[in-house]
Nucleic acid binder design. Structure first.
Length: 567
RNA sequence: CGGGGUGUGGCGCAGCCUGGUCAGCGCGCAUGGUUUGGGACCAUGAGGUCGGAGGUUCAAAUCCUCUCACCCCGACCA
């Protein structure tokens, strides 16, 4: 491709709405353009990268035994009502009315459509397993799109679904996919961390995410500094700091005027926060829930939601709290009626807590579980934090931001049951098909690659996904000799099967070099009077500082060799 | 949805508080010339009616009301 003919120019000025590196650089390089909040066009260069990523993914899915198919974006809402996931997605679901006033959904994912299809076409255990996938556009009305291509409302995603006869076979499919994903990231030169993840309201046994560690990541990864334990903060468990054993003392009222927060309370009573009892009120699907946790810990809402199996969970408003007859700031687990109570296990294990007195300005000392109160559920509902103990070894947990660039789930039979996707097993019994699903957002992967591979000059594409492999850069093209050599090289490099971006513009060296750096094409070949004096061209990797001179006569062979070896 | 911010030629911005030759600057773009190994220089030129609607006023980019869009923080986000 001749740069003079390429659609899309580089920009010097930084678009003001972009704050992450990938967003900024992709805009400046003329690879993407925003159309609406969380909606982007890909321009030719960006689209080439996306196609390369797509091809890598397709090859790995095919290698793993996946069969590609295509499903519609437009889906009847009834299908979603059948599985109840119209509610689970809530307002995140893009819907529209057709001319007959029937509601249609712009597919945010395709389990429903595919499960229905598989239900129609799979009858016997002999028809299983199946790994089916598509690479297609999804729509999710995110509350807040952000970070350029990182979180968008319309995006291209590879989604594969596995259909198996039992849990063991699901494990096989699951492992196969994890391996395929690892191959994909390897080929894209992206180091990823496989972390345990929450599988959300859908349930299912296991779920893992592939994380790219990056400062701009919006997810939090908790990992052990000694062993390989790693989990999304939503899911992470930790060993909570134990409390020194004491004798349980009798309860005692204390006046605590105006002390409403844990911080104030602990300071006022001159005790550490781990001897206070934090009470947090939530509303779960309309029901007020009383959550208790040791004062030094925080409630992990994802864990709580999972535990309560509710689709909506939010902090109770003041109105909701007082409507339930509770004194905010002085709430007590004692004497609560008709309110579901959940206690973190730290509460059951702790001792002599200070808890609310259930009336203003009063707390109660030496509250002990289960002597003085009971909870409906005792479970781990705490946020794991940096500095906590590893649940698997004696190491310490660290926290780091990451970008989720792949997510795999064991779904189980939730959807196949709802949609009647059954098969007949060896004994002639009808059973629901066991499902898994596996997603990668292509645009997010592209953006993540830029987040990982860039410097202050621009993008540094890994060779495997670069829009072009070679940037052919003649300086002083008006010199006939230069342009002859460059034109010849352009033709020959292409004939040799290389992807060449030919900077045939009449621009100054500075402009050309800066654009080359911004666009991030891996190998730059410069032709100038200086190099031709030595019958050579200059060859330089974008990622390296040093360049080398290569005789013009050998240039094509040498460049091809470099590209093939990737070095 | 709560909080904050921004909308002025393709891009980045100034002007707004203190209405009145304020529609201006830089980049980019076009033409000509001189240059050119890390975003050159000179000259000339095209291009905006100031997000939209309504209002106040003799007069509105500037003040008021409403509205839309976009960005950031949070909530949210299989």
């Amino acid at each position: 491709m001749r740069l003079s003919e390429l659609f899309g120019k580089t920009q010097r000025e930084i678009p003001s709405e972009a704050d992450t590196a990938s967003h900024r650089l992709l805009l400046r390089a003329g690879m993407i353009m925003q159309v609406a909040a969380g909606v982007y066009s890909y321009m030719p260069l960006g689209w080439r990268v996306l196609k390369k990523i797509e091809n890598i993914i397709r090859e790995e899915m095919d290698n793993a035994g996946g069969q590609e198919l295509a499903m519609p974006v437009l889906q009847p809402v009834e299908l979603w009502q059948q599985t109840g996931r119209d509610k689970a997605f809530g307002r995140g679901l893009f819907t529209l009315l057709d001319r007959r006033e029937r509601t249609l959904v712009l597919g945010p994912t395709h389990e429903e459509v595919l499960t229905q299809m598989v239900g129609h076409h799979v009858q016997s255990y002999r028809d299983l397993p199946k790994l089916l996938y598509q690479i297609q556009t999804k729509f999710r009305d995110e509350p807040r799109p952000r970070g350029g291509l990182i979180r968008v409302r319309e995006f291209i995603m590879k989604d594969l679904y596995s259909f198996d006869v039992d849990e063991e076979k699901l494990d096989v499919s699951y492992r196969k996919m994890i391996q395929a994903y690892q191959n994909i990231y390897d080929r894209c030169d992206l180091p990823t961390l496989l972390v345990e993840a929450d599988s959300g309201a859908i349930g299912g046994k296991d779920s893992h995410e592939f994380m790219l560690i990056a400062d701009t990541g919006e997810d939090e990864v908790i990992r052990c500094d000694k062993c390989d334990y790693a989990a999304n903060a939503d899911k992470a468990v930790s060993t909570k700091r134990p409390i020194a054993p004491e004798k349980p003392l009798p309860m005692e009222e204390v006046a605590t005027p105006g002390m409403k927060t844990i911080e104030e309370l602990a300071n006022f009573l001159k005790m550490s926060k781990d001897h206070t009892l934090k009470a947090v009120f939530y509303v779960a699907d309309g029901q007020v829930v009383f959550a208790m946790i040791r004062g030094d810990l925080d409630v992990n809402e994802v864990k709580l939601q999972r535990l309560l199996k509710c689709t909506d969970l939010h902090l109770a408003t003041e109105a909701e709290v007082s409507a339930a007859g509770i004194a905010a700031g002085y709430a007590s687990p004692m004497g609560l009626k008709n309110i579901k109570t959940v206690a973190d296990d730290s509460v059951a294990e702790g001792i002599n807590f200070v808890a609310g007195g259930n009336k203003p300005d009063v707390h109660i000392k030496n509250v002990n579980y289960p002597r003085d109160f009971k909870a409906d559920i005792v479970a781990d509902i705490a946020c794991a934090r940096e500095g906590d103990g590893c649940p698997k070894c004696d190491g310490m947990l660290k926290s780091t931001p990451g970008i989720e660039i792949g997510h795999v789930f064991k779904l189980g039979t939730f959807l196949s049951t709802a949609l009647g996707a059954d098969f007949i097993d060896e004994k002639g019994d009808s059973r629901p098909i066991i499902m898994g699903c596996y997603g990668i957002g292509l645009g997010r992967l592209l953006a993540a690659a830029v987040e990982h591979y860039h410097d202050d000059k621009g993008i540094v594409w890994p060779l495997s996904i670069a829009p072009y492999q070679v940037y052919l850069c003649p300086l002083y093209r008006e010199d006939a000799n230069i342009s002859d050599v460059a034109e010849k090289l352009y033709t020959e490099l292409q004939s040799a099967g290389l992807e060449v971006l030919f900077d045939d513009r009449e621009e100054s060296p500075g402009v050309k070099f800066n654009d080359a750096d911004l666009l991030g094409i891996p190998l730059r070949v410069t032709v100038s009077p200086r190099t031709l004096q030595k019958d050579s061209v200059e060859v330089k990797w974008r990622a390296e500082k040093e360049s080398r001179l290569v005789p013009v006569a050998d240039a094509v062979v040498r460049v091809k060799d470099l590209v093939q070896r990737g070095k």
